[in-house]
Design a protein around this nucleic acid. Structure first.
Lengths: 157, 157
DNA sequence: CTACGTGCAAAAGATTTGCATTCGA
DNA sequence: TCGAATGCAAATCTTTTGCACGTAG
């Protein structure tokens, strides 16, 4: 039952990708569908290195360049979202699947206030952000396509 | 008058740095005060490259390593804030002076929705974010030290 | 005097790019 | 067939690190 529903979902996702590819006159390469499937099998945030290693372990051979390339496409298609956890610049970007998911934000909990080692990342969703968004759209005459909100803190003693 | 007030402010800032340095048992190097002054003379967001070039143009010789080093200290001291505008991972971090400034967030306006070239960055301040912050602190039993909120969009036609 | 801080250059790490090869349409 | 995608390696770009030297305390 669980497996069935999962299978159904991934098929829907692949259909979304197929339509996107058709719209953009891109090509239906097997890599794109395989990477998509791999991403949608994950339940965690992942980075390019993770995904690259995981796929190669499973004997799907993909180059890193292709992973990066494909990730860009998926981002544009709205199939995944990108995150920059922690505030360090050089650290890798993280991604997560986004289709079927409602938009949410993140609370980054550091082990200690000082050295920014991440202990945990919690997702949350507060509807008030929509109100702020609308206020900003009106105040500055813009259309807002996305937002990113992170809170950084530590566990209460 | 304007100049006087400016001079006064920078002295206060330097005093803040001095106290911080004393607390941490660091050393009062001239570089630290010169870089601080340079930052507080700017009215724009800046990155390390900008600051490094600017200072060397003015014949203050500082190495990039020292700039990075000093920036870290200032961040910890709360004298500056760090931003990652645009969503690209490899792009440099930006900074801005933060003392005397109230916390604000940013609206990043892209020229076109698609290619993420930045047209303008607008600062705003919406008090509702405080309400969200408090809700999160209570919900997850954490102390939140900081947040970052960015809206991304384009100008309305 | 004794480390801490600086400068310089090399290293590291994530991402991009160039180019030859493959393969979808 | 023909150009878009891929794979691989080299290049790029920001930030970090190692080490010798200078200097604050």
């Amino acid at each position: 039952m669980e497996i069935t529903r999962k299978k159904k979902n991934i098929d829907v996702i692949k259909e979304v990708l197929k339509q996107y590819i058709r719209d953009k006159n891109f090509r239906n390469t097997p890599e794109r569908y395989t990477i998509l499937e791999e991403i949608y099998n994950m339940d965690q945030h992942f980075n390019v290195e993770d995904l690259y290693l995981l796929m190669n372990e499973k004997n799907y051979h993909v180059s890193k360049a292709t992973v990066y390339n494909t990730i860009d496409i998926f981002l544009d298609a709205g199939l995944i979202r990108k995150h920059q956890f922690g505030e360090k610049t050089g650290s890798p970007s993280f991604y997560e699947k986004s289709y079927f998911d409602k938009q949410h934000d993140h609370l980054v909990i550091y082990k200690k206030k000082s050295d920014k080692e991440i202990e945990e990342i919690i997702e949350f969703c507060d509807p008030r952000i929509q109100g702020i968004k609308e206020a900003i759209e009106n105040a500055f005459n813009v259309n807002i396509d996305s937002h990113s909100l992170y809170f950084y803190g530590t566990k209460k003693a």
